Computed example of a mutant assay.
Amino acid sequence: MKAKLSLLLLSLLMPILYFSQSGYPKQIVSEGDSLVAITKHQVKLLNLTKVTLDRQLEINKEKDVKIKALEAELKTTEDIVSKQDERRAISEAEIANRQELITEQDKTIQQLNKSLKREKVKKGFLIGAAVVVIASVLIFK
């Protein structure tokens, strides 16, 4: 029953909807030119829409300029970071080289200290032997 009632209402509304849409917007032909008649309210809406659109276009242009400026700044920043990374890599390589040099110098110092200790021991033995020889010469005389 509801379906039949809905179908009846729709069939009654179709001619009304067609009639209300068929004459709008009103077209006027004047000296071969076609014009569309619109209401004052629609003109205001169109003007407001155009002003809003123009403002949005200006805002978009401003945003595009800002975006380009930020992209240039980003590029500069990336270049700086890249150079700093290169410098850091060079510094790290220099640090590694210097650490190797320090390690080698430490080994050399240790070897020299060992040699110095040996020489001191030899010198001590030589002095001790000389004292013994001199003491025995003095005693046996």
Rank of each mutant, 00 (worst) to 15 (best):
K40W: 06
L45A: 13
L57I: 07
V29Q: 01
K61G: 04
N60E: 03
N60Y: 03
S34N: 04
L57Q: 02
E31Y: 09
I28Q: 15
L35D: 06
G23K: 13
K40M: 12
V43Y: 06
A37I: 06
V36A: 15
K44F: 06
G23D: 08
G32F: 08
R55V: 06
I38F: 07
T49E: 14
R55W: 05
D33T: 08
G23M: 14
L53H: 08
K50V: 14
K44A: 10
K26Q: 09
N47I: 09
T39R: 01
D54C: 06
K61S: 11
Y24I: 02
H41K: 07
I38G: 09
Q42F: 08
I38M: 12
I59A: 13
V29Y: 07
K61Q: 14
S34Y: 02
Q56K: 13
T39C: 00
V43C: 12
L48T: 07
K44D: 05
H41M: 13
L53Y: 01
L48Q: 03
T52S: 15
L57W: 12
I28F: 14
L35K: 01
R55A: 09
N60W: 05
L53N: 10
V29I: 06
T39L: 05
E31L: 06
K50M: 08
T39W: 01
Q27S: 05
L35F: 10
D33M: 08
Q42H: 10
P25D: 09
L46P: 07
S30I: 12
K61L: 11
E58Q: 11
L46D: 14
Q56Y: 07
K40V: 11
Q42Y: 01
H41W: 13
Y24F: 03
Q56P: 04
S30Q: 14
N47Y: 11
P25H: 02
K50N: 08
V51G: 04
P25G: 00
H41L: 14
T39D: 12
L45M: 15
R55T: 09
P25W: 11
Q56M: 11
K26W: 05
K50T: 02
A37D: 00
V36W: 11
K50G: 02
K44G: 06
L35R: 10
G32K: 07
Q42N: 14
T49Q: 15
K40N: 10
L53M: 00
V29N: 03
S34T: 07
Q42R: 12
T52V: 04
I59D: 03
L53D: 08
E58A: 05
L48D: 13
P25I: 11
